[in-house]
């Protein structure tokens, strides 16, 4: 029996899984790593930063109304027209925006992956039916649905609203996952699993979903900033969070009204928003390179 000797020449080094490989590639990408650190930093700041400030997000300081940043007081980033501390309010806004972005993305992720993988794998008439349903939802005007939803729910209950937005926003995710599944379905390892007698649920859970995780993570990372932006847009329209709550969008809305007299009220929240969005997009790009090395 010479086979042992024949095949024993194995690659040296520790077993390197897909994730270890992806992590190694991601770490090499400076822009993505800086973006990821910035996101973590901003998130930490948003949740623990306000405790360092003596002010609360809705407390009115009658002595310091509309003061610019760096003044002789403890309002580090100034105050708004009502004398509320802009540092604390902006961070409260970041908190809400991040939570909303993650929540809506998570909802769209769960629905989209399950729907897309099922449609793609089953194929045929079922796939046709499922994807035409997606097409119909696509053609409905998104913004009207959201406006109707926001009037149905009690004003200010922004989480319910974004659960609903996530439930509409899964469409693209479903299409991406379906496309991936269709190409996976033709791979020989799926046929191998079929030949081994693995049933449909087993193939979906053990072979299809783990193999679409890469593109799903990439798309999810790029969905978060979209959702944040969408929330800001709704809040800008006055449909999002209600006073005295603040989100980045509502702060920018207020700031835009004072642009000529108190430009910092616009620049502070806008700066945070732009930084967050840029970071998420850079991170998504880096993940694309790390998880899908064929496209490099």
């Amino acid at each position: 029996m010479t086979d042992q000797a024949m095949a024993a020449a194995l690659p040296a080094g520790a077993a390197r899984g897909f994730w270890a490989d992806a992590w190694r590639r991601l770490r090499r990408n400076k822009a993505a790593m800086v973006a990821a650190s910035l996101i973590v930093l901003i998130a930490l700041l948003a949740f623990i930063g306000p405790t360092f400030s003596p002010h609360s997000f809705d407390a009115i300081d009658w002595d310091n109304m509309a003061v610019p940043p760096g003044g002789p007081n403890d309002h580090w980033l100034g105050t708004d027209r009502l004398g509320r501390d802009l540092f604390v309010r902006t961070l409260a806004g970041v908190q809400i925006s991040l939570q909303i972005g993650l929540l809506a993305t998570l909802v769209s992720l769960c629905i989209g992956v399950a729907f897309g993988a099922t449609a793609g794998y089953l194929g045929g008439k079922i796939d046709n039916l499922m994807m035409r349903f997606v097409d119909i939802l696509y053609s409905l005007p998104y913004i009207f649905i959201v406006i109707i939803l926001s009037t149905l729910f009690e004003r200010g209950n922004i989480y319910v609203l974004f659960l609903a937005i996530g439930a509409v926003g899964w469409l693209t995710m479903a299409r991406i996952v379906r496309g991936q599944t269709l190409s996976l379905k033709r791979k020989e390892f799926i046929e191998a699993a079929l030949a081994s007698g693995v049933g449909t649920p087993g193939i979906l859970a053990r072979h299809i979903v783990p193999n679409v995780v890469g593109p799903v993570i990439i798309y999810a990372t790029l969905t978060i900033p979209q959702m944040i932006l969408f929330e800001s847009f709704l809040s800008f329209l006055g449909l999002g969070v209600q006073e005295p709550q603040a989100s980045l969008g509502s702060l920018i809305n207020e700031g835009a009204q004072e642009m000529e007299s108190a430009v910092w009220m616009l620049l502070v929240p806008a700066g945070f928003l732009v930084t967050l969005l840029t970071c998420f997009n850079f991170l998504g790009d880096g993940l694309r390179d790390a998880l899908d090395p064929r496209d490099r």
């Binding site: 010479t2 000797a5 024949m6 095949a7 020449a9 690659p11 040296a12």
Partner: peptide, 12 residues
């Protein structure tokens, strides 16, 4: 009469 082993890895 097979040749044993694998073609070498050009890195090693």
């Amino acid at each position: 009469p097979a040749i044993g082993g694998q073609p070498p890895n050009p890195r090693r």
